[in-house]
Every structure is written in C-alpha cells, then in structure tokens.
Design a protein around this nucleic acid. Structure first.
Lengths: 147, 147
DNA sequence: CGTGAAAACCCCTGGCA
DNA sequence: TGCCAGGGGTTTTCACG
C-alpha cells in the first residue's frame, strides 16, 4: 500500500474521466493545463497505485430487457460467515452488488430482473440459498445518480 | 423511443467495454471478429440510441479519503413529491445515488463520507431537509460488485 | 451492414530542463 | 515533475460490395 498522494490536478483529471472515461489524454491535458505526456503519466500512476480501479461503460438496462431493479435486505443465521453471505448471493446472475452491513441486517443485495415474476424467482432463490432467515425487498421506482 | 435492436455482437462489445471502457476499437474488433469501422459504428449507434449512457472511471474512494459508505432509508411526509425527495437528497454532495421506492419506505440514499462524524452530519442534514419523517442508516462493511 | 484504405489525429516513448 | 518532438498506431471518414 504505497502512500497515495493525490493532488488537485489528479482530482481534476478524475472528474474529467468520471464524466467521460473515453476522453483522450490530449483533451484532458488541455482542460487541466498540462501536456498530454504529463496527463498520461498521472493517469498511469493512479492506475498503478490503485486509486483508479478500472474504466467501465454505463448502459440503460431497461433497453436491454432488464427494466426492474430492486434491493433485498437479508438476514442470515448466526452461523453464516461474511464470505458465505457474499458467495451465495453473488452466485445469482441477477445480483449486481452485495453490501455487507453493520447492525441487525446482514446484507443489502441489489438485483436487476426482466419482470416481477423474475424478481420473485430471484428472491426465492436467495431465500433458499444458505442460511437466510429473512428478507425484505424494496422495489426501485426511480433512480438518480451523481453526474 | 426508437426500437432498440441489440444483437449478440452488440452484447459482446458491451461486455468488452464493461471490462475496460478504454479499449481501442481495433482491439474490440479483433475479439468480436469485425473490422474496426464496423465496431465503431455499432458503439456509435448504441450511444445514439441510448443503450450506452456513458463511460466512467471506477475509483477506490477509500484511497481518496472517503472510506465510509452507508445507505439511509428515508420516509417523507405525505405531501412530498418524488422530485422534491430526489432534489433535497441529491443536493448533499456526499450523496452518491438516490433510489425512490415502492412501499412504506420512500427513498434509499447512498452516501460516501470521510468518517463517522461526517456521516452523522450528513444524516442530520438529510433529516432537517424538506419533509423527512424518519430515517434508518445501514453502514456498509464490505461490498461486492459484479465483474 | 459489412469491408478496406487514406488522412488526420492521438498515443507513447525518449531526451532534457 | 514537467515539456517537446518524433515515429508508430488508432481513429475516423470515405467509397464501395
């Protein structure tokens, strides 16, 4: 774990990449007031140090036939370990993310499905799996995400 | 809403971009068995049609000094509209995402903060804001995200 | 919708302040 | 750390099947 020094220029570059990860180094360089070589070197360094973990595409899942999104709060039996919780949930292909929690809830699972019947099927699979003792599902009606 | 026709080749390209959004068209073309021109045209078309909504960088927030992540479940007074709910929450810079929900909960708010004192401050701000009638906060201990 | 080729642009490395 | 400069690769557009 090297000491991660991230200055204002790095933050500016990260903000530009957050808006559009396919921006060219030349474009970013002009906006932050550096040369393209210096900009690339900073991006490479942030990748190397682990500040940047990757670049990804954002898709409109509804247009790909997966319009229904939900969160499932899950309680597990006291014997379940964290890795078992994550493993059993992440095995389901509809599960997008698993958050393990402090408190009486053990996990918050984000799922993406084709329709309500499909949602019920996924929840049933989650409940059967491992040592689940209870679930509560929150259906997402709308979402807002920063920039 | 144009009819969105996404075939297997498009899905293959999306998967490659999901793994690394900064891949070159030449690289993707070779992997899916198309020319670079055809590959670029498909990506352009998916951007145009709204299937692709953007490209973004993934960062390790902990290394940027924001190691604490939490979800806040929020109930609003019956007079609050959905847009008011989203507006009041998204105004907080620490709020990463707002999900509006069906059921007795009105919203699930994802926040990212520097420490626990900071978390308490954000929750206080959320509670004061608008017509919040109740909150419950889930602290994230760990997260798993697909690929 | 696909290819292939040409020009423009960008990446990337090396050398130096 | 930063800039400049060059050769090589990529992007982008075009005409065409």
């Amino acid at each position: 774990m090297p000491e991660t020094e991230v200055d204002d220029l790095d933050h500016a570059i990260l903000r530009l990449l957050h808006e559009d990860a396919r921006r060219t180094y030349a474009d970013m360089a002009e906006r932050v007031g550096l040369s393209t070589a210096a900009t690339k070197r900073r991006v490479d360094r942030m990748r190397e140090s682990g500040v940047i973990t990757g670049f990804t595409v954002q898709v409109d899942h509804a247009r790909l036939g997966w319009p229904v999104e939900a969160f499932s709060e899950i309680r597990y039996a006291g014997t379940a370990s964290v890795s078992e919780i994550v493993d059993s949930a992440s095995r389901q292909p509809e599960v997008q993310a698993v958050y393990t929690l402090a408190g009486d809830l053990d996990a918050l699972v984000q799922v993406r499905v084709r329709d309500l019947a499909h949602l019920q099927e996924v929840i049933d699979r989650l409940r059967r799996n491992g040592t689940v003792t209870g679930t509560r599902t929150l259906m997402v009606l709308g979402r807002w995400t920063r920039t």
